[in-house]
Simulated assay, not measured.
Amino acid sequence: MTRGVNPVSRWLLSCLALLLLLFLLSPIAAICGIGLYYALGIFLVADIGQLDAALGKESGIAPALMMTPLTALGVSLLATLWGLALAALWRHWLARRRYPLLLLSALPFLLPRFGLGALFLLACLKLAQWGGNALGLPLVAASQAAVAAPMVAALLCIGWRRVDPDWRRTALEAGADEWTIFSRLTLPVLKPYLVFGALLSALLSLGDFYLSNALSGDAVLLPGAVFSGVAQNVSPLYHALVALMVLVDLLFLIFVFRGLGRLNFVRNGMRP
């Protein structure tokens, strides 16, 4: 008969876990609190001029606010197409048990971001020696899409399991070609997973610091500008932007989880 955990030990472990959680969350809570206080102050006094003045003073923020969402959109589109092609390859490799190839194609998602950023940076500096500046927003979008594509492919492989193999067999017997089968039978099932993969890719792009900071060249993106401003404590505006980014991330996650819940209901033959 196993002995139960001592109540004193359980209490101490609970206190240690709570202290660790507070230690991890306190910097984020402090930054978001200052940011929300600053944003709420502007909203209450309706002083948009203060916000314009702050944006004008911090010259790197305004371009970053424009280029970062555009880069995230490009990452989302590229990762979705890349992930769709990768998912088709994964299904082929899984059927033939070629697991090393699958693992190798997923390495950009598995490697640490700073290591991946260093690898991309070294490769592009080598390209730059051959002529031209290889750094910039296209490289940031390509590298972030390389990270997000395996995640999108994994989601699509999950969705592909909902496609009944008998549908394809029946369509082939009826004379349909592979493209018609994919566009009429498979793609409608995969559409929700494509949407969720695109949203998660954009979410990863908006919050990525290592790749965007290492590969953007002269361009300024929001993660690098915000983190540098917070570290140097230049202006409360940076804290407000951190709070805004956290809020956007939470809204994205809530939307994705609610959508995945609806998919689970439909898969079980129910309606949410």
Rank of each mutant, 00 (worst) to 15 (best):
P7K: 04
P7N: 05
S9Q: 13
W11H: 15
L13P: 00
C15S: 15
C15W: 14
C15M: 10
C15Y: 14
L16P: 00
L18R: 09
L18Y: 13
L18S: 08
L25K: 01
A30W: 14
C32R: 08
I34T: 07
G35N: 01
L36R: 03
Y37D: 09
A39C: 00
A39N: 01
F43P: 00
L44P: 00
L44E: 11
V45D: 12
A46R: 14
D47T: 03
I48M: 11
L51C: 08
L51K: 02
A53F: 03
G56K: 08
P63H: 10
A64Y: 05
A64I: 08
A64R: 03
L65F: 12
M67P: 00
T68P: 02
L70C: 08
L70E: 08
A72N: 06
G74L: 13
S76P: 00
L78C: 13
A79Y: 03
L81W: 14
W82V: 00
L86Y: 11
L86A: 11
A88I: 02
L89Q: 13
W90G: 03
H92Q: 11
A95Q: 13
R97W: 02
Y99I: 11
L102I: 15
L102F: 12
L102K: 07
L103H: 05
L103A: 13
L103K: 08
L103T: 07
L103N: 13
L104Y: 04
L104M: 15
S105T: 11
S105D: 07
P108D: 02
L110C: 06
